[in-house]
Design a protein around this nucleic acid. Structure first.
Lengths: 200, 200, 200, 200
DNA sequence: TATGAATGAGGATTCATTCAT
DNA sequence: AATGAATGAATCCTCATTCAT
């Protein structure tokens, strides 16, 4: 019999994942406790473990979901489109994701900083393949003189690091900028930087 | 009489701090245990606490040391020097620090991601002041047409995020780049990017 | 919705408090361990902490309960009654409490000897007020010649010290008296002493 | 070679015992730490253990010294003297000891409350013998009508408990009496009480 | 004689997980 | 589907004592 999930089941799983994201993204895996997650979820601790077999399972489910969304934008780059426009589209999408899903970003950052124990394989597999493919495209653009000569890998790192910085280092960004909203100038700067870097 | 530290004392404190850095930078404060640190330090757990009153004290000492080194480069920027050269000098220094002290960088990243519970004040105080001062300098350069118009804050974030990315996201960087040494192209790219962004 | 306690909850809390009283009254707060209390209670150590948040909480709960019962007898003294009879009634009540609740008495004694870190405020507040009020009554009796001139405070100390002596110094009392039951002559002596002291 | 103690040895042993008394009397045996004692003594912890083999040894030495002084007054009672005067002399001596050596009193109280693990034997031996002898004397006085009929044991307990109360329950006594010095009325009351109780 | 260094044996408390209902 | 009850395995920290000098 195929396990069809009831409405309540779906709702609670979603609630737990949301709570898990909230907590894990701030305190990391080991720094988070089921009590915290249960508190945020508004459920009892044993009830959490009724829906997920373990703390680990919640964390892994979150990471899996995250990776899916994390990879999507790369595939949206159109090798046939205008180079600068395509890169900018990608970069802005990344920036918006950092704005809209800062907790996901921090969850990811925590996982990577700790050596990617859970998602190491994905990094070496799917992610690497996607970026290698992208590098071929970019190198093609460079070879045909459509963009300035640029290392595709470091280009990607620039985009990743800066966009995620606004989410992951939010506290520092806000501390440094005082009351100013960081996001106001962020996109402008990102676009300017990439245009200068890429436009021939 | 000023308590002069024994040779053994100095050695062991250094050993413990090194071990603490190793462990805290990877697992964060809550994810690290005194057992791990003792293991790495090659000392017994109570002996750790003979030199430092608590786990917290080790962590705070590390952060304090870190902050000191972290702030230095900013102050080395010479308002009277060549704008692009000064910014480049700073950026390259930062990059080298990430290369040479990746654990310090990750320790810092962990602290910030978790909301900077320990160093929040420094961020709002000394760090903010330093960057505000730097912004004045950069804005001066912009106003006199010596560099392209850039937002000083986002310029700084670009430098910070990219340079630290190589340390904090090392696993991902290496996964994506396969066998290639990330550092070979990193400085080149950093310089290119900043020159394009800043040169009028 | 008021948290109504389960039957099990009530039972276990009572069990723990009884065990805590047993242990704390003999070894004092610092000399007692959760292991001892768990052993006596027949519960696991973490289970103790499931019902009470800390060792301290068990101790404080016990002291709070104790103080309530400890204060009651004072309030039962009727200013309008026969002076000697009222004092005797109070003294005998105290004596019976020492007999029936020797552990409570020792718990109290331990707390006081160590400087009353927990209940210092109650001593300066409620207890002092009660005894000051009592002193007024006794002084009234003295002034109207209904009892011999006595210092109300030292009268109270006499009653407290002697009655509690049988509980707190039980070992010594029994050692000195050999096989004789201390309580047989105790009440007799107490009554005789107070009558001689008070009767005009 | 007979171990003759050097001057420094004597001095340090005395210092340690004084510090031990200070600490043990307040926190009890298990509640006291060598660190506390070392702190009070102004000596290093290992140095303490150079003079005394263990924490236990310090405690036992203190108790032994204490018992010696504690027993003396009883022997000073003169069976041939005036009954009331002799009892009063004894009681006042006890009171003065409580005033002058409150820490000794509390140390003793702590030991007894905890079941007299160290000095149980002395209580059953020397102390019991002394009080039994005293009882014979008092009973003689009673038989010959020189004092009112009193139970010698409970008489002794009255004296012990009240006099020690001022030392052991000092905090409570002072709390109840407010600013008044407890000792001013104490002796007066003690004398009055005993005279009333004993005088035919 | 004195003390800096070191540690094994606790001791309070936390936490993921299991059990019973 | 939900939760009160329970616990073994940590985890931070304390402390009497030992060791080396």
């Amino acid at each position: 019999m195929p396990k069809t999930k009831t409405r309540i089941q779906k709702k609670n799983e979603a609630t737990i994942l949301a709570a898990g994201l909230e907590v894990f993204s701030q305190y990391g895996f080991r720094g988070s406790t089921l009590d915290m997650i249960a508190e945020v979820a508004g459920l009892s601790k044993p009830n959490l473990l009724y829906y997920f077999p373990s703390k680990d399972a919640i964390y892994k489910t979150l990471l899996a979901q995250l990776l899916e969304n994390w990879m999507k934008p790369v595939y949206a780059i159109d090798a046939g489109g205008d180079p600068v426009a395509e890169i900018l589209k990608y970069a802005k999408l990344k920036l918006r994701m950092s704005q809209d899903f800062p907790r996901e970003s921090r969850l990811f950052a925590n996982e990577i900083i700790q050596g990617a124990p859970q998602i190491g394989e994905v990094l070496h597999g799917e992610l690497r393949r996607a970026i290698v493919d992208l590098a071929v495209v970019v190198n093609g653009w460079v070879a045909t003189g459509r963009v300035r000569p640029v290392d595709p890998y470091h280009l990607v790192f620039s985009i990743w690091s800066l966009t995620q910085h606004y989410a992951d280092f939010d506290v520092q960004v806000r501390a440094v900028m005082g009351g100013t909203d960081p996001m106001i100038g962020a996109e402008q700067h990102l676009e300017d930087m990439l245009r200068q870097l890429l436009t021939v």
